[in-house]
Design a protein around this nucleic acid. Sequence first.
DNA 1: ACTCGTGTTAGCTG
DNA 2: TCAGCTAACACGAG
Length: 271
Amino acid sequence: MPELPEVERARALIEARALGRRIAAVDDSDTYVCRPHPPGEIASALTGARLTAARRRGKTMWCETDRGPVLGLHLGMAGKIVVDGAEAGDPKEVLGTTWDRFTVEFEDGGRLVLRDKRRLGRAVLDPVIERLGPDAAEVSAREFRERVGHGAAPLKVRIMDQAVIAGVGNLLADEALWQARISPQAPAGSLSRPAVSRLYHSLQAALASAEANGGVHTGEVIAARRRGGVCPRCGAPMRQGVVGGRTTWWCSREQALRRAAGARAPGRATV
DNA sequence: ACTCGTGTTAGCTG
DNA sequence: TCAGCTAACACGAG
């Protein structure tokens, strides 16, 4: 379920509990999660080392080591980080090791685990962080405007492009666009400057709210993403469609697509 | 019972 | 050349 706030909690867990401990063994036998590494390759690089830092940009995490190799971790759609049995942000620990896809065992007997039912998470050596845009929670308003506010692609596609802005997933995108009252289908370059600014502030607010309330799924409009759902603000029917290949929900009244989307005051859709 | 999906990306297609 | 689509992953939710 992780989007950026959940990933940050996982990173903080690693930072708080896994740094400085000598690595005794690594189970990298899941060749899908550890692709493209053959079994043993990550283990050879990490065994004997210690993790020295836990970093994050967007939804990608990486751990530096005192031996040089960097361990990249991604939670995918359903992954969690477990350290010594403690799960980031989830009081209910899942017992057993059925879904442990990647394990770092420390000399002291503890372990850092990527637990992931769907196997969409990744553990790799030396991830290419440079391909990611600035972190969504740290990007400045100016940089956001410069990176997001142009191009022919639908706005939602633009903000979910991890090379443009790192950390915005499907739910967070719907929430931020709804808060800003902008159509997800509006071409990114068609937005007025005030509309881009509004989206920036909505995204920051959605991130802060998710952080405070325990996840992106607590967003105001998320509960309305269902058949028969209505806009929590105006009561108009929510509309569903596919944008950039992802299920998308938006308010049929406040987020209607129109010429020069976002250039006018919201709430008076022309269609 | 059956469809869909909070993510990413290689591989195709037009 | 490239934007856009699909499959792959494996399980839970509706």
